[in-house]
Structure formats: C-alpha cells, structure tokens
Amino acid sequence: MYIAQITVTYKPSILDPQGEVIKDALGRLDYQGVTSVTQGKYFEIKLTATDEQSAYDEATSLTEALLINPNTETYRITMLAEVEA
C-alpha cells in the first residue's frame, strides 16, 4: 500500500488572491519578513499497487483527471510506503 501526498497550487502566472490577502494580513501583524504566500489544496490518497512507480503513475493520472484545473493549477506528488502497525 502506498500513500500519495498531492499538493495543488496555482501556476506562477496565475494571481493567487487568497495568498495575497494572507500575506497582507501577516504584514499587518508585523511579520515583515514574509515576501509571498501561496495557498493551495492538499490530498492524501492511499493506493494499492505492486510497486511505487505504478502507484505514482496512478496518482498522476487521477490528479490530472479530477483534482486540478490544468489551465490554472500545478501539482506536486510525494509518495510514501505505508508502514504496517
């Protein structure tokens, strides 16, 4: 069993209004060292697969099919092998 950790954010060319609001609020709270904020979505999906590459390929496929808008968003996938307790 594998766990796909999928982080979805706006592409660099797309304005992130919520990230800008958060950055401005942090400035008002006197966090002056913050130069940018990117907000996004996080998914954690358990996959059964014979190997990590197959799990990664399935995670990529389902992400592109459902989890992102390819016109405005990009994603990053981190794979973990689930540790049995």
Rank of each mutant, 00 (worst) to 15 (best):
Tyr2Arg: 01
Ile3Met: 06
Ile3Asp: 02
Ala4Leu: 06
Ala4Ser: 07
Gln5Ile: 03
Ile6Thr: 01
Ile6Phe: 10
Ile6Asp: 01
Ile6Cys: 03
Thr7Ser: 13
Thr7Ala: 13
Val8Leu: 05
Thr9Met: 12
Thr9Lys: 10
Pro12Phe: 08
Pro12Gln: 13
Pro12Glu: 12
Ser13Cys: 06
Ser13Lys: 06
Ser13Leu: 11
Ile14Trp: 13
Ile14Arg: 07
Leu15Gln: 09
Asp16Cys: 10
Asp16Ile: 01
Gln18Glu: 15
Gln18Arg: 14
Gly19Phe: 10
Glu20Thr: 02
Val21Thr: 04
Val21Gly: 09
Ile22Lys: 04
Lys23Ile: 04
Asp24Asn: 11
Ala25Asn: 13
Leu26Pro: 01
Gly27Asp: 11
Arg28Trp: 08
Arg28Tyr: 11
Leu29Val: 01
Leu29Gln: 12
Asp30Ser: 11
Asp30Arg: 09
Tyr31Trp: 10
Tyr31Arg: 04
Gln32Phe: 12
Gln32Glu: 15
Gln32Ile: 02
Gly33Lys: 12
Val34Ala: 12
Val34Asp: 09
Thr35Asp: 15
Thr35Cys: 07
Thr35Gln: 14
Ser36Leu: 08
Thr38Met: 10
Thr38Ser: 11
Thr38Asp: 11
Gly40His: 05
Phe43Pro: 00
Phe43Val: 01
Phe43Asn: 03
Lys46Glu: 04
Leu47Trp: 08
Leu47Ile: 06
Leu47Lys: 09
Leu47Gly: 00
Thr48Ile: 13
Thr48Ser: 15
Ala49Val: 02
Thr50Lys: 15
Glu52Trp: 07
Gln53Arg: 06
Ala55Gln: 02
Ala55Trp: 01
Glu58Ala: 03
Glu58His: 10
Ala59Gly: 01
Ala59Pro: 00
Thr60Ala: 08
Ser61Asp: 03
Leu62Gln: 11
Leu62Tyr: 07
Leu62Lys: 11
Thr63Asp: 09
Glu64Asp: 05
Leu66Lys: 02
Leu67Gln: 03
Ile68Pro: 13
Asn69Trp: 07
Pro70Trp: 04
Pro70Met: 03
Asn71Trp: 13
Thr72Ile: 08
Glu73Ala: 00
Glu73Phe: 00
Thr74Val: 02
Thr74Glu: 06
Thr74Tyr: 08
Thr74Ser: 09
Tyr75Glu: 01
Tyr75Cys: 02
Arg76Glu: 15
Arg76Val: 04
Ile77Trp: 14
Ile77Gly: 10
Thr78Arg: 13
Thr78Met: 15
Met79Arg: 05
Met79Glu: 12
Met79Gly: 05
Leu80Lys: 01
Ala81Ile: 04
Glu82Trp: 11
Glu82Phe: 12
Glu82Asp: 09
Val83His: 12
Val83Met: 07
Val83Gly: 07
Ala85Cys: 08
Ala85His: 09
Ala85Asn: 11
